[in-house]
């Protein structure tokens, strides 16, 4: 299995971040929260690997 990648891995990180902000533009807070939830699920499905997902949950909680 592969380990959770926690080193820089996004090409043109500034472009990505700008696109992420743009996706939220014009949404209410509720809509933005819902958007983020959907995004998490889409990305999690892409990752697939259960161990990696568990590690990602730990990293996000600050315990990883």
């Amino acid at each position: 299995m592969t380990d959770l990648v926690l080193t820089p891995n996004i090409e043109s990180a500034d472009d990505f971040y700008a696109e992420l902000l743009a996706a939220h533009e014009g949404l209410s807070k509720d809509e933005s929260d819902a958007f983020n939830a959907r995004l998490v699920l889409v990305l999690a499905n892409h990752v697939g690997d259960r161990d990696v997902l568990s590690d990602a949950l730990k990293a996000a909680s600050g315990k990883g």
Partner: peptide, 29 residues
């Protein structure tokens, strides 16, 4: 916006421990 701030703070939080978030911290390129 509020979400923009939430995401910004998330990047800063993660960058303390995780190298991947550091390139996203933008205090001027």
């Amino acid at each position: 916006s509020e979400m923009s701030r939430i995401l910004r703070d998330a990047v800063l939080d993660l960058s303390e421990k995780h190298e991947f978030a550091r390139p996203l911290v933008n205090s001027g390129r």
